[in-house]
Computed example of a mutant assay.
Amino acid sequence: MAKPNKKGPTKTVDIFCSSCRAPLFKYRKGGKGALVKCFIERISQDYTKQPCICPKCERPFARPAIIKGTAAYKMIGGKVTFK
């Protein structure tokens, strides 16, 4: 399988927990669609203490996965928002 582009997009989005609005990541996202997965190599700033757990409300917002041969987080539907 083809790996995702290492350089990735230059546009960054801020990702927040949808229940407590705590910041989770600054992520280099490509495209206009919904946030389904985050490739770990594209995260520019990580505000979490434990992977996939919100630092404020301590609820899981994603699951670790291997997508296209690269480590990623698969987002749980409705647990995160971004702008």
Rank of each mutant, 00 (worst) to 15 (best):
I53V: 10
A72Y: 01
G69H: 00
E41A: 11
I40N: 07
I76L: 05
V36W: 08
D46L: 09
T10M: 09
C57Q: 06
R42H: 09
I53T: 02
T48I: 01
R21P: 01
I15Y: 05
R63W: 00
R63L: 03
A22C: 15
K68S: 10
K68A: 13
K37C: 09
F16Y: 10
T81W: 07
R42A: 08
F16L: 10
I53P: 00
D14P: 00
C17N: 13
K74C: 08
A71D: 12
K3F: 00
Y47V: 04
A34D: 04
Y73G: 12
F16E: 09
C57I: 08
G69Q: 05
M75L: 09
Y27G: 08
G31C: 03
K74H: 05
V80G: 07
C52R: 01
I67H: 04
P55A: 14
R42E: 07
K26G: 04
R28V: 11
A22I: 11
A71V: 02
I67P: 00
P23A: 15
K74N: 05
G69R: 07
I40D: 08
P23N: 15
S19H: 12
K37Q: 13
G33V: 13
A72D: 03
P60L: 12
E58L: 03
G31P: 00
C57V: 05
I76A: 01
I67K: 06
T48F: 02
A71M: 12
M1K: 10
